[in-house]
């Protein structure tokens, strides 16, 4: 697809001359490759695209994308991108963050960005570990995780990033898997089309400090563990599509046979977040399957648009700001 300038872009155009410094086998490579081949599809010129990140292995991402980019400070990327997106609505702004970056030090910025519905896309590379600082447990590590900083196991209950985002009033929430290029591209495409904040959790393998954390879905050729969510379609999975999800009157979700009555039909556009939230509670451990795809995708006023609108209204009501008039406003007097 050609971009704003009529150029035809390819994945190669999005590569930089910087040597990629992730460990061999790191899931970040697959995400980068998927992103670089997906970007041309958007038809947005490279100069109008900006990647902003915090700190962590994941946060190195902008160095490898031949667009504008900022590798900022730990946890603050959503805040920084908020200033950029609200002053420059003409740009396509992407935030890349890790589970520690987004959910620990930057948790506050993440939830507020989501509730404001700033027009940017947040990609959270979840490896359930602190990679860059060499292997301490993270806010998504399972309880009892043994790491260098938790030799007897971690004591804190983890966040479920999808539940958190939905609870934070996110208008778009999705999940993808680093190695699943097709699935990830679908989610990214929907995220890019969404106006407002789009939050995408990407399961990312860290072979060095938390290898195989997502093995059950990463290497799931038969589809026995991935529950692919598609808007408007019944939620079924399994090698032969024999398993399905069904919602109980109390809102919780149970597994049933695909042939049974009451199989849940996915509705990502429901204004109420209850279903999306219930789906976010479906996990490998509790239900024997892991939903991937778009959980929630609804429209709501976008902060940047509302701000621009207030500026327009003020100018319409008061006229374009006149500095001389402003300085001379209020009671003035002349000394001669």
């Amino acid at each position: 697809m050609s971009d704003d300038n009529g150029h035809t872009l390819t994945a190669k155009d999005f590569r930089t001359d910087q040597e990629v410094r992730w460990c061999p086998g790191c899931g970040d490579y697959a995400i980068l490759a998927a992103m670089q081949s997906f970007m041309p599809e958007l038809g947005i010129a490279r100069e109008n695209t900006v990647f902003v990140s915090g700190i962590g292995c994941a946060a190195r991402f902008p160095y490898y994308m031949n667009t504008y980019g900022m590798h900022s400070i730990h946890g603050r990327a959503p805040a920084i991108a908020t200033g950029l997106a609200t002053t420059r609505p003409d740009l396509s702004v992407w935030v890349v963050t890790g589970d520690g970056d987004a959910l620990s030090i930057g948790g506050n910025h993440l939830i507020h960005a989501l509730r404001r519905n700033i027009n940017f896309k947040i990609l959270l590379f979840n490896n359930r570990i602190y990679g860059l600082t060499k292997g301490q447990y993270s806010p998504t590590s399972e309880l009892g995780k043994v790491t260098k900083s938790t030799p007897m196991g971690s004591l804190d209950w983890p966040f479920n990033p999808i539940s958190l985002a939905i609870g934070a009033e996110a208008t778009f929430v999705g999940r993808a898997i680093d190695t699943d290029k097709k699935g990830m591209t679908e989610v990214l495409r929907a995220a890019a089309e969404h106006r407002g904040s789009a939050f995408v959790e990407i399961f990312q393998n860290c072979p060095i400090f938390n290898d195989d954390a997502f093995e059950f879905v990463r290497d799931d050729k038969e589809g026995v563990n991935r529950i692919a969510l598609h808007h408007g379609e019944p939620i079924t999975w399994g090698a032969d599509g024999e398993k399905a999800l069904r919602q109980l009157p109390d809102g919780t979700i149970e597994v049933c046979a695909a042939s049974e009555d009451g199989v849940l039909v996915h509705d990502s556009s429901h204004t109420e977040p209850s279903l999306a939230f219930a789906l976010s509670r479906v996990t490998q451990g509790t239900h024997g399957g892991t939903p991937v795809g778009v959980f929630r995708n609804v429209e709501r006023a976008v902060y940047d648009d509302l701000m621009a609108e207030q500026l327009r209204v003020a100018e319409k009501k008061r006229g374009k700001g006149d500095l001389a008039k402003l300085l001379h406003s209020g009671e003035t007097w002349v000394v001669s």
Binding site: A79, I80, A81, T82, L84, T86, N108, H109
Partner: peptide, 21 residues
């Protein structure tokens, strides 16, 4: 454009983002 942020860190961060733009 005034942005009442969630805290002072975000306030400064958003300003840096705006400066970049």
């Amino acid at each position: 454009r005034t942005f009442q942020a969630e805290d002072e860190i975000a306030a400064a961060g958003a300003a840096v983002g705006a400066a970049f733009g």
